[in-house]
Design a protein around this nucleic acid. Sequence first.
DNA 1: TATTGTTATACTCTATAACTATA
DNA 2: TATAGTTATAGAGTATAACAATA
Lengths: 169, 169
Amino acid sequence: MNQPAPPAVVDRPVQPVAKELAASSGYLLARIGVAFKTQAVAKAEETGFELQDYGVLAILSEGVRETQATIAEALSVDPSRLVALLDALEDRGMIARQRDPHDRRRHVVSITAAGGRELGRMRKIVRAFEDEFLAPLDSDGREALHALLVALAARHDPRCCPMDVDGSL
Amino acid sequence: MNQPAPPAVVDRPVQPVAKELAASSGYLLARIGVAFKTQAVAKAEETGFELQDYGVLAILSEGVRETQATIAEALSVDPSRLVALLDALEDRGMIARQRDPHDRRRHVVSITAAGGRELGRMRKIVRAFEDEFLAPLDSDGREALHALLVALAARHDPRCCPMDVDGSL
DNA sequence: TATTGTTATACTCTATAACTATA
DNA sequence: TATAGTTATAGAGTATAACAATA
């Protein structure tokens, strides 16, 4: 799956960054975070889906949202981009849009049965990839990492922390 | 600076992502990593420099590299982009390029005294920002996080791990 | 002919703002 | 007049590939 050791380039010395940068947790965080995302996007494409679609279907599977704008905000994508994502998913029968009878400006977006099945497929692939990515860490290490990331997210990206807010979903 | 605080949106509920996503360490990693990078870039701009310049100067301050290509590879930027970065730094007198007498195709890039001073200024700002970003973690938490990130980097981005390879620098 | 650095081109991505239909 | 969703435009950023000079 990964290319942990490209055979043709065995003797390439691997150019290290400055020690000063490697010593920075923030730098590592950014670089590893980008690596995870990039590789996950690639893995998704290999397997025939767009990673962002996974996020959209995952949200919809946990309940209906008031408006498209709230979905976009949760995923931190621009509302105008979400339109394109929903268009594609609707074309493939994974989601359905219908007018909100109470406010006909709004679209009520819901996941279909086919969308639910596709979500299941995506979930398996994404989780397998994540497991592979975290392979260097044992069970305790993974638990510790998650707790630390949650602590940071609570401060810097509260949308990732479905805390004790209330039963909003 | 900011918008005059629209009073009508004080109670905006913060739209949470799917619990399924929030439970994924990889997802958190990507999202927090991106947040750190974005905010660091913004902080740098506020203070009058480009974040990537910090990376370039940091590398050069730790020794001379064989070629520009090795610098680009270490920072994982495209060689053609590095040219623009070096051009700007050279114009400002932060670095100097001179032909390698042994191979006149190559440029030996070195940091100047002014560049060193500017690096010191950048370093202070970046470290202060990182400290602020990691505020939710105590000393033990930060240490644990760093160790976990190093373990992941060793597998996924070895350039960030100046290990026991050898005295390459 | 291959490599180093550079320049130019083209492409992708995404934010901005205009537009419509409802309220 | 304001809002939800949509569409269109433009701008930034970046990879690709052509180029000139050396080897």
